[in-house]
Design a protein around this nucleic acid. Structure first.
Lengths: 249, 249
DNA sequence: TCAAGATAATACCAATTTAATACCAAATTT
DNA sequence: AAATTTGGTATTAAATTGGTATTATCTTGA
């Protein structure tokens, strides 16, 4: 059998106790490797022949495995070229920076007025977003965000207690605090919506009731892909706007 | 025809574990170098011949790699002069997709109800955003955007007439139309704000006056870095939300 | 038990990439 | 203005890659 310089199939192994079809096992192994980040987006998988030879299966088997990955949207085929890792997470990439960092870069002085820093039990929404059980305690951080003494946003952050042991110690930048524990989010999904400010929020932001505000929900993931942060931001729209640079690829 | 005599470039791999074509690997390598700040904006890359000789690949391969960088908007070509790092490059990356593309990907059927497709003179704002003179005519496209027959957004796009000669011919996806003329935006700056819907907009979107809507202003740039699109979108917030994935780098 | 479907192997087909070569066109340098 | 350098384009051969049809075998369920 032909040997290759490196583990071509990138650590794909078969489980002898698994009696599901070979191609299904192979598909699962490759999918795991992709999700574990062993391949970059747009990188080619080993060719079907290479895969089949290095794993000692027929090419059709390897091919069927890849078929499954294509169905799952993990891989795209290109005849004559290869099978490529499909763009993940809709490939929407953008620089992730915290409120503090963003404002500092623009020359403002960011401050916080703390409303709450406590360890509590999570709501069901928070359990779902963070992937934790009902009994896993979380740190809940509520504060007003100010730029040069002007209230810009009301923000609620919820993080597993394992990530923020002593919430009261968080002072300025949450990300700065997290960075020390290697739990800083490297990826986040943000949902951006508009919202008519209800009475309590309006009072806190110092705006009229019903005024449109940006409502941003962010789930941040650490380097291991674990959700470590759920933040709801209610941003005054007249002082702050959200800028995104986008690219086509 | 000469046989691949010398150590064929096929054996040269920048990353032995990467099965991607050579030019793709090279493109990624150069892109990484650019992002790492090894080149200044406006600085020339090594010439194609120099690149190919120093890396022992054919000029076509080096050229294809650069092609990819140009498509990504990282590099601009100047015949007779060289390939230069594109201006205004920032590391904030996010996938740029049009309304149509976004909805299609989510399984909706996007349609448009056209309100206006005309060639007119630009407003001063539009002149500034697109970098054109007061006498340069523009195509103004106004439409309601629908997903599965439900009004999702009201959108106004303004483009230089040189880019859209016959506005009335634009039917579905604007980007699809632009793609044929090689003027498709590869980069865009979006400002996202919240807005209380004024009467006219509310009527068009079928919502109450004062209801919060997402107001998105987008300036799109083509591969040469020229502004080719200015689009204002007023999005119903209850049906559509804007999702952005962000990364730290 | 036996037939239908799933699974796997083999062989051949078609698209694409790589590469080499030659030459054109635009910009820069001398 | 001429020479040089740079990107732009076209053509062709060979190698590589995915695409597909066929067949044998195994598994599954009526």
């Amino acid at each position: 059998m032909k040997k290759y310089a490196t583990p071509t199939a990138k650590d794909i192994k078969f489980d002898v106790r698994d009696n599901s079809p070979l191609y299904a096992q192979l598909a699962r192994k490759i999918a795991d490797a992709i999700r574990a980040g062993h391949y970059q987006v747009d990188e080619a998988l080993p060719s079907e022949r290479l895969l089949s030879e290095s794993l000692n299966v027929s090419r059709v088997t390897a091919r069927k495995a890849i078929d499954r990955l294509v169905e799952q949207g993990l891989v795209v085929r290109r005849q004559g070229s290869g099978n490529y890792i499909a763009p993940r997470f809709e490939q929407a990439l953008s620089r992730l920076s915290s409120f503090s960092e963003e404002l500092s870069r623009r020359g403002y002085t960011p401050t916080s007025r703390w409303l709450k820093r406590a360890v509590v039990l999570p709501t069901t929404d928070e359990q779902a977003s963070l992937g934790i059980s009902a009994s896993t305690k979380v740190a809940r951080l509520e504060r007003l965000r100010l730029a040069d003494e002007v209230v810009m946003a009301y923000e609620v952050s919820v993080l597993p207690q394992s990530v923020v042991r002593r919430p009261a110690e968080v002072e300025g930048s949450l990300y700065e605090y997290l960075g020390r524990g290697q739990q800083i989010p490297v990826r986040a999904l943000q949902h951006i919506r508009a919202l008519n400010a209800p009475a309590r929020l309006a009072a806190q932001l110092g705006i009229d009731v019903g005024q449109a505000v940006l409502f941003i929900t962010r789930v941040g993931f650490n380097a291991q892909g674990k959700a470590v942060e759920l933040t709801h931001s209610y941003c005054r729209n007249d002082y702050y706007d959200f800028v995104a640079e986008m690219r086509r690829d």
